[in-house]
Structures are given as C-alpha cells and as structure tokens.
Amino acid sequence: MSGAAAMQTMSPPGDAGGPRSARPVRMTPARWGLYAFLAITAAFFLLPLWVMVVTSLKTMNEIRLGAIIAPPLAPTLEAWAKAWSSACTGLACDGIRVGFWNSVKILVPSVFISILVGSMTGYALSFWRVPGANVLFTAMMIVAFIPYQVFIYPLVRVFAFIGLGQSIATIVIVHTIFGLPTMTLLFRNYFSSLPIELFKAARIDGASFYQIFFRIMMPMATPMIVVAVILQVTGIWNDFILGLVFAGRENLPMTVQLNNIVASVQGEREYNVDMAATMLTALLPLVVYFGSGRWFVRGIAAGAVKG
C-alpha cells in the first residue's frame, strides 16, 4: 500500500497515462523559518515568566550561585510564604496579603459599579435621543486618551472637600469615573448593533426605560458583560497610580504594596521574595487571561475600538 503511494509520488504531474498524482510537498524551508521566528519570539515572551517562577522557588544562596534561568534544584515555597505573610514595606512586616485583600476590597465594588454605570450610559446613549448626548459621547472619546495627571489634583481636592478623602469609597468612584469611557463605548457599540425594532417593540408593549434595560437589554448583553468584567478586573487589579493617590495609606492596593516591598531594601535584597510577591500580584490577571481564552482577545478588540 505504502509502496504504491510512493510510486505515485514519483510519477511526474504531466504524465498522461500515469496514475493519479499525489500532492507534492511544499516549501519546507520557508515553513521552518516561520516556525523558527515564532519559537524565538515566543522564548523572548516566555523568558520573564519562567525566570519569575523559578526565582521565586529558589533560595537566595542558589540564586547567587546558579544561572538565572536554571530550574530550582530543590524547589521551596519559603519565599512565597514570606512574600505572602511577612515581607516588609517600611516598618510594617505583614506581607503582601494586606495589599491582596485591599485590592479585593477595591476590585469587587469597582467592577460592579463601573459596569452598571457604563452599561446604563451606553444603553441610554444608543436608544434614547437626549439633548447633550453627543457632547457627552465625544467628550468621553477624547478623555479616554488623556493622561490621569491632568485630573488627579483637582479630584484629590474634590474628594477632600466632600469629606471622602482617601478611602475605599473614593477609589471605587475614581475607578468608575475612569472606566466610564471604555465601558460606555463597549455597551453603546453592542446595543447599537441590536435591531432597533427590538427596542421599539418593547416600548409598544409598554415597557419602561429601566424595564427595557434590566429585562431585555442586559440579559442579551451577557457576552459584553463577560468582556467588560475581564477588562475591568485586569485593568483595576493592575492599576497603580490611582490606588496610590486615592485609596489612602490603609487601603493601598497590591501593586503599590508590591512596589513598596521591592523598594524597601533593608540589608540584602531577597530576589526570591521579590519575585514571589511579583508572581502573587500577577496571578489574578494571569488566571483571568488563561482562563478566559478568546474572551480576553475579544475584550482587547472591543476596548481597542475606542482608538
């Protein structure tokens, strides 16, 4: 059987009397080059993650003697334990868990409220003709590009003036404010893609503004909600500057605390603890990323629409 197949490969394609010709193999060198390029770039992208993981599993002694990319000889979670519960930021030595729980406290309400406000704004802008809506929308599109530094100081004063100062409530409101353009755009684009007849039919059936929103639109928008959650969870978890300014000393998020742990050198720097703390901070976004698969890409594509 396989001998016959080989024979067929041998017969030239133009051979009139010959048997059916088989598919010739194509451009292997080019394919090799392609895969080599992909592999080399993949190594560049994976190197930091690999180094981060192996370093966090080593002892300081091994780090000093061995190669940075070598796998740990005797993997130990000591650095992880120290990073979690006893690494120092300045005088306090409670580990990064403090920042972790602060981040959770910031994350949950921020994600919920920013998506609620953003989706409602997007809904109102896509189905309801309200004077000023265009101005609002254009302003949001522009603001999405403006650096935070322009807004930060006045906002600090405003929150001090209304008595919230630096607090969880403040940082939640700030995340809602700065998430508003992207969230609004995400939902507005989605709702605009729905047939307008759906909305008209609901109105003829006598549904009110909020009934249409909660009963008809939001259930249909589930895919967008997933995308929004992914965007906001990673975005808010990864935030540094807003947490630093608005959360207050007691509520600093994990990213800020991570930076403080690495910065506060007392005696020798413990790279394994640093990398364990870094890994812990990166864990949630990585889980969201690898867990959500194509949804993350969809989120980026949807978020990129603002550009």
């Binding site: 394609p13 059916r20 010709s21």
Partner: peptide, 13 residues
C-alpha cells in the same frame, strides 16, 4: 483524488 486537465495539460498540482 482524481485529475484535472485544462487545454490538454494535466494541471492537477
């Protein structure tokens, strides 16, 4: 499977 001839030439591949 099979062959494709155009203008008297076997152009299958």
């Amino acid at each position: 499977d099979g062959q494709m001839w155009i203008g008297g030439r076997n152009v299958t591949w």
